[in-house]
């Protein structure tokens, strides 16, 4: 959408021609809605075609993270140590962990039980 102005510009104004013009009131309302939504967070199902999203991502949104009221992690519904593996196996938050499919397939091999030894996980440099 490049122009939501109901009045097309006069022909002698040197500006690029709009590809789509919102002509009637309903079109202008729709165009305003689309422009307002662009760049905002939105549910995956609202954005067909969903070509940019990783496969296997969860559809739930469960923020359980950082520390509990005693500054520990045991009171959290989703302790950070487990969250780390959730990112890896189920692609919960893919930006947070190394890519275990192609570039760093063994980045967790030194860590058998993350709740106890998560500090032994290797560093991975891109």
């Amino acid at each position: 959408m490049t122009n939501t102005d109901p009045v097309p510009p006069p022909v002698n104004v040197p500006r690029p021609r709009a590809r789509i013009l919102a002509c009637n009131q309903k079109a202008r309302q729709l165009a305003a809605l689309v422009l307002a939504q662009r760049g905002d967070t939105r549910a995956l199902t609202q954005d067909p075609p969903p070509t940019q999203y990783p496969y296997g991502c969860t559809t739930i949104f469960a923020p359980g993270w950082e520390v509990d009221s005693s500054n520990g992690t045991h009171g959290l519904c989703q302790p950070i140590e487990r969250d780390l593996y959730d990112c890896y196996h189920t692609c919960y938050w893919p930006a947070q962990v190394p890519d275990g499919v192609t570039n760093a397939p063994s980045w967790t091999s030194s860590c058998g039980a993350p709740m106890q030894d998560w500090k032994s996980i290797d560093l991975v440099f891109p």
Binding site: P8, R17, A18, R19, I20, L21, A22, C23, N24, K26, A27, L30
Partner: peptide
């Protein structure tokens, strides 16, 4: 557009 009743102007490629 009959689903919304919007009227859009489109250039030839669009």
């Amino acid at each position: 557009v009959a689903t919304s009743a919007a009227i859009l102007g489109v250039d030839a490629p669009t």
